[in-house]
Structures are given as structure tokens and as C-alpha cells.
């Protein structure tokens, strides 16, 4: 018997009903439109085009020297622009990973993330926070600017309770809140996007201007996705996101130790040389060590029955 809250959820997100309960045809149609997981570097370089970035860089540098306007930074992107950047980053991630379209885990993750976001420093983004599970055994999670978040099945399996899963999402919300994604964009591209092309071309962009602006856009998306998928953020950014996670967990009413619990499982599961968090994040050992000073005073995570039951039920089969 479907409980009332779940039914409400499903009718609200009619599409999930279609995908999850509407039978195999819809499901396979959606999945087949996405490539299965593959080596990321090659795909991105070819789809977006590294040479685009190089051209922009030269152009941008030249323009930068001639422009008398004040230097612009990632902070000058409006939430609206951040939204379009985030959608393109998310679309790129989905060209590398298949979504896992079971409704229960996805609905649960969205409920959890949107709850946590209300206790972050950035509860409101242009079009809100949304989460999608990736059908991958890798231990991975990404957040696109503006709040589109992806969590792999492998990552979910590192979580033994809701407080741990909340920590994964809170860490991603932390990256969104601090605009770490936007900070991965080369400064020259930002100048090009914000001061020069964009302002002059705001109304009725000519096709040439639109093409140039789109090249800058592609370059910016490449900057972000190659950071997310290949090189990873700096340790400083990761520490900041971990600290934000503790903050968000504590304010929401979760035990910040959920993050350490997750990292303790992750350190056992991560495979050296893997293309996931093994490559893009500081080691769980380092993260646990840097979090230690904040953990004093927090007891072990207590698995409350109702919370643990719903966690296990929603993620059954993941």
C-alpha cells in the first residue's frame, strides 16, 4: 500500500510516475538517450572542443587590455546567468552518466536536499535545488551552479543512515552556496561574458555575437565540468564545503558526525586509481582528520527507528 505522502509526491512529480511506474518502454527510451559511463576526458574534449577555449582565451586577453571597465568576477554573474550555466553543466554530466530513474530514491533525495537547503546560506537559487541519482558504481557526486545535484549509486552505498546521506547532500549544497563551480571559470572568459559581448549584445544578439558568446559559454562549461569530473577542486574548497556541511547538518537537526561516518565507509570502498572521488577529492583520511576538531561534543549518530526505516525503504535496491 502506497502511503499518502508518497502518493502526493508522485502525483506532484507526474513524470516520475511515468518513468518509474509507467512501465519499461518509457524507462528504456529515456535511458537510451544517455550514454553509459565512459572515460570523461576524451568525451568532453571532443564534444565541447578545447580549441574553443584557446581561441576565447586569446580573444579575451586582447579585449581585456582594451576595456576600461572595472574588472568583473564570478560574483557578477546574476542568479539567472548562473542558472543557465548550471543547466549546461548538468547536461554535460548527463552525457557521461546515465540517470538512475527509480522514483523512490530520487524523491527521497529531493526531499532531503530541499530540506537541507533551507538551512544553508543560500536557500533560494534562481530555480531551486534538485537532485538526480546516477546509475554508476563509482563513488561520485557533483553539483552544478544554481543547485542541480547528482549523486551516484556508489556514493549512496557509502551511507549507512540518513544523517550520512544528508552529509553528502549538504557538502554539495556547500559547493553551490560558495559558488565554487563559477570560480572554476577562467577570469578572462568572465570578462568576456559579462562586460564586453554580453552588455553590447543584450538586445537582439546578431548571429555572429551569439556565436561568440556561445563559444565563451562552452568554454566556461568546459572549465567547470573538467574541474568537477577530472581535476577536482582545491583542498581549500573541499574543506570549505565540508565545513558548510557540518553547519547545515547541525542547523537542520542532523548529527554532523554523519559526515565522518560516511567518510569512514568511503575510505574502505574507494579504489586507488579510480576515476571518482579517488581522483577528484582529498582522501577521506585527510578529510576526517581536518574535521576532527569540530566533532568534540557530538555523540555517535543514533539511528532513530522511523528515520532509519524510511532511509532503508527509499533506498532499497540502490
Amino acid at each position: 500500500m502506497t502511503n499518502p505522502s508518497r502518493r502526493e509526491f508522485l502525483s506532484q512529480a507526474g513524470w516520475w510516475t511515468l518513468v518509474g511506474l509507467g512501465g519499461a518502454p518509457a524507462f528504456s527510451m529515456l535511458v537510451s538517450s544517455c550514454a553509459t559511463t565512459m572515460t570523461v576526458t576524451s568525451k568532453i574534449s571532443t564534444t565541447i572542443g578545447v580549441k574553443t577555449g584557446a581561441i576565447d582565451e586569446t580573444k579575451a586577453d586582447a579585449i581585456q587590455q582594451n576595456v576600461a571597465e572595472a574588472a568583473k568576477s564570478f560574483k557578477d554573474f546574476t542568479p539567472e546567468q548562473e542558472y543557465y550555466i548550471g543547466r549546461a553543466v548538468a547536461a554535460t554530466i548527463l552525457s557521461q552518466y546515465s540517470p538512475y530513474l527509480e522514483p523512490d530514491p530520487n524523491l527521497y533525495l529531493n526531499l532531503l536536499a530541499q530540506t537541507l537547503a533551507q538551512f544553508s546560506e543560500l536557500p533560494e537559487t534562481f530555480n531551486g535545488y534538485h537532485v538526480l541519482t546516477l546509475d554508476s558504481d563509482e563513488i561520485n557526486a557533483f553539483s552544478a551552479p544554481g543547485g542541480l545535484i547528482f549523486v551516484s549509486r556508489g556514493m549512496i552505498r557509502c551511507c549507512e543512515h540518513e544523517d550520512a546521506l544528508a552529509a553528502v547532500l549538504a557538502h554539495e549544497i556547500g559547493h553551490v552556496q560558495y559558488k565554487h563551480g563559477l570560480q572554476a571559470i577562467r577570469k578572462s572568459r568572465i570578462t568576456l561574458a559579462i562586460t564586453t559581448l554580453a552588455i553590447k549584445g543584450v538586445k537582439g544578439l546578431g548571429s555572429e555575437k551569439l556565436a561568440r558568446l556561445t563559444e565563451t559559454f562552452e568554454g566556461s562549461i568546459l572549465d567547470i565540468t573538467s574541474t568537477l569530473i577530472n581535476s577536482g577542486y582545491s583542498r581549500g574548497f573541499e574543506k570549505q564545503a565540508d565545513k558548510a556541511a557540518l553547519d547545515i547538518l547541525d542547523r537542520t537537526g542532523y548529527n554532523p558526525r554523519g559526515l565522518v561516518d560516511m567518510l569512514n565507509v568511503m575510505k574502505k570502498k574507494l579504489k586507488p586509481g579510480g576515476l571518482d572521488f579517488a581522483k577528484t577529492h582529498p582522501s577521506p583520511y585527510w578529510r576526517i582528520a581536518t574535521l576532527r576538531e569540530y566533532m568534540a561534543g557530538y555523540p555517535k549518530v543514533e539511528k532513530k527507528k522511523a528515520r532509519q526505516d524510511r532511509f532503508l525503504k527509499a533506498l532499497e535496491g540502490v
Partner: peptide
């Protein structure tokens, strides 16, 4: 201004294999 729906439209046209359909559905939750 700048990165807007027109740019997204152009970007989509250049990357027709990118799954914007899924992104739209995701935002409906």
C-alpha cells in the same frame, strides 16, 4: 544579459546529444 536562453538554445543546437529533456524534468520536482 549574457548567458541567457538564446545562448542556451545555440549551445543545445551544437550539442544535440546533451540531455536537456532530463534536466527539464529534473527541475519539475
Amino acid at each position: 544579459k549574457g548567458f541567457n536562453e538564446h545562448v542556451e538554445g545555440e549551445f543545445k543546437a551544437r550539442h544535440q546529444d546533451f540531455d536537456y529533456f532530463m534536466i527539464d524534468r529534473l527541475e519539475e520536482i
